[in-house]
């Protein structure tokens, strides 16, 4: 026993025991290994049995060497909502690219932006990660800060010239969030989202009346 042990200052943090059986653990890793193998085959550009076998081998070896932690991913998948999200993001990516490109050529030194705070209505880590990634791709917005405790996302948007444009940016962020939650949230996430949405609606109504 060392001095550090006695004082309790240095003590290794023990990982929570994994209660899953080895078979469950193996099955949990399968999707990642399959995805790595698919990438391997694509990179070789040759779907022959030998390539697939070698890919499986390299993927399993790499995966076990990396000792990745097990993350319980609890996401849903709603095909129709995913299609709606994909088409919306595709359209927004196009529209915002053209808009940003236009401002590049037309008086870029006068382009003004705004940083708005938008409270998020979901509290799932995965969904928030998806939202902040998706937002940076669309409609002149760039996520620069995410307050995890309060669930507030800070988005920089260009071009913003008027108060209406600021409101438009807020609406855009909220719509993207809604689409992502409805596409990838599980039943719990969606229920929570709808509860937060109702709360928000009542508070804004009180404020306006």
């Amino acid at each position: 026993m060392t001095a550090a042990d006695e004082s309790g200052a240095v003590r290794p943090v023990e990982a929570p025991a994994d209660e899953r059986s080895w078979l469950q653990r193996l099955l949990g890793r399968l999707p990642t290994v399959v995805w790595l193998t698919v990438m391997w085959v694509i990179l070789w550009g040759d779907p022959s049995p030998g390539t697939i076998l070698a890919g499986l081998l390299v993927a399993s070896l790499g995966y076990s060497a990396a000792r990745l932690p097990h993350l319980p991913v609890r996401l849903g998948f709603h095909p129709i909502a995913v299609l709606r999200l994909a088409s919306r993001i595709g359209y927004d990516l196009f529209a915002s690219s053209v808009r940003v490109a236009f401002h590049v050529l037309w008086r870029p030194e006068r382009t003004r932006g705004a940083i708005v705070a938008v409270p998020m209505r979901t509290d799932s880590d995965f969904l928030l990660a998806l939202v902040s990634g998706g937002l940076s791709l669309v409609t002149g917005s760039l996520v620069i800060e995410l307050n995890r405790d309060q669930g507030v996302i800070y988005v920089h948007g260009i071009p913003v010239a008027s108060p209406e444009a600021v409101e438009g940016l807020r609406r855009q962020v909220r719509r993207t969030e809604e689409l992502i939650v409805r596409a990838f949230g599980n039943a719990e996430d969606i229920a929570e989202f709808e509860r937060a949405e109702r709360e928000y609606a009542t508070t804004t109504r009180k404020e306006t009346s």
Partner: peptide
């Protein structure tokens, strides 16, 4: 573009 935030927009979208 005059500042970094606007520049990141061009790097991210077009």
């Amino acid at each position: 573009f005059p500042d970094l935030l606007s520049r990141m927009h061009t790097a991210a979208k077009p």
